[in-house]
Simulated assay, not measured.
Amino acid sequence: MAYCDKTGDHPPASLNNEDSRNGHDPATDKHPTPHSKGNANDCCSTEEARTVSVPHGLCVKKKKLVLHVDLNNTILVSDAVTSQGTIAALDYFISTVTWGQMSKQGKWMWMSDSPSLLPPCEGAVSYYSQFGRVAGFTSSTAGQRFRCVLDEHLAMLRWPKELKGDKELAVKGEDGQLYHWILPSFFQLLKDLVAEGRDFAILFRTFGSDLPRVLSAVSRALTQGSHPLFPDLPALKLSVNETPGQIRCSKKGAVLTRAEERLSTRDGERALYQYLSSVQCLGGFQDHFDWWARNTYSILGGKPLWVDPFDQDVQHIFIDDNIRQNDKDTIVHPKVFLDRDGSETRTASTSELYDLCLVQNDLLKAISDPEYFTQRISICQENYDRNLQQGAG
């Protein structure tokens, strides 16, 4: 087995509008590869936290947060689109965060025994990138070294045996056992945001068909206290718009609809930004998978996210497991406004907004750490505020 012997820090992100004016094309640009700092000899450990300091709880500054949250393999461990149950979905995710490379003899060599979001060294590729979806990855000869990772996180994901199963919040896995359908760390995030007195909204953004069910389950937990681990959620006084919206994209632009509401970028992209910045509490939109596929799963076909670096009052953050620092293979299309109050935007590369407005979800940590989402948002706030201060200077 060949292990990487190089480590490095995450490159600084920025909101530099000069890139677009100098002909920068994020879909073809090559960015430096960040390196993880995990223990290469511990197959049950995951990537260590980044070096950005994380204060307890969330940032004190009361800027409104609009959190765009993916569903599958972000707050749900399942995938209705691919018909994956809990075990299959988690097994698949592990194949996307384990790294190796092909030898000159055409044999696969592992570069690390520790799962990590980012490649441990230059030249390393994920097992999924090399071989595609492999059913039963951790049961295969190549992937069995990561079986302990699967078993460990399934144990943490199991619905407590002493509690009665819930038809919306618990799901039966392929092994017949009950598991959490929505990660407890998501509900903990809601409690943390309210405890901080935060003005916030959460918009579920998914390509899949689970959105109506998620909206219903979350609404019931928030209004009826149906979650046995979080019976006090009604005290948060949060509401859910259970009407699913849609965002559809084409060469002519994007169209957002929900019930009687309809906005189009043909009338200017600023209007959609203002609409999404003004939403309250929780809701959701189904994004346009076919558009992403037609754009070869690249940044240009991804879920649109409008970012205004001049806005001192609102910060948009997108959390998705398929956010990657390879703009030819990523799921969110960041569109950054060029001028204050203007309507013209540019496509920002993923690496530019990584850990500022874009969070690549670590499903393993989202399962194991109840404070995971709270901490990731805190890191984004800290980086974003520092970036704005540097820009102002």
Score class of each variant (00 low, 15 high):
T7C: 11
Q84I: 00
F318I: 01
Q360D: 04
V359D: 07
N72V: 10
M111R: 15
S126P: 10
I331W: 08
V69C: 11
R145A: 14
V332S: 03
I299N: 03
G283C: 07
T138K: 05
A170K: 06
G23H: 01
Q286W: 01
P184M: 07
S343K: 09
V279G: 01
W292K: 02
A142H: 12
T7N: 13
T347V: 11
L222D: 05
A271F: 05
L150P: 02
F131W: 06
F200I: 08
D355P: 00
E242V: 12
D42Q: 14
H56N: 11
W306Y: 14
S116H: 12
I323L: 09
I367Y: 03
R198G: 04
I377L: 15
K107P: 09
V194S: 13
S20W: 13
A392E: 14
R340E: 14
L263R: 05
P228Q: 00
R262G: 00
Q84E: 09
N326Q: 14
E47W: 13
P231E: 00
D362C: 14
D192L: 04
V134E: 04
D5T: 15
V81Q: 12
P244C: 07
R147V: 02
V336R: 13
A366E: 11
Y128R: 06
S216D: 10
T296F: 09
L203A: 05
P304A: 02
R198I: 04
E196Q: 12
S114N: 15
V149R: 06
D290E: 15
A135W: 01
W99G: 12
Y372I: 11
T330N: 13
Q390R: 15
T46E: 15
A2K: 15
G100V: 14
Q280L: 06
Y127L: 03
Q325R: 14
T138N: 06
N387Y: 07
Y273A: 03
K252H: 03
G393H: 11
F200P: 08
K191H: 10
F186E: 06
C44K: 13
D79T: 04
P304M: 02
V307S: 04
L300S: 05
S139Y: 10
N322W: 04
V66T: 05
C148R: 12
F310D: 11
N17W: 06
A221M: 06
N387S: 15
I87D: 00
N387W: 07
G197H: 02
L276I: 03
G8K: 14
L215P: 08
I319N: 06
I247T: 03
P32A: 13
E261S: 03
F204W: 12
V81Y: 12
C380T: 03
H31N: 11
I367A: 10
R248Y: 02
P234M: 04
F207L: 02
F186K: 07
V255G: 00
A2N: 14
V60T: 06
D290G: 03
Q286N: 08
P231H: 00
P228E: 00
G173F: 02
A124I: 10
S140A: 09
K63E: 03
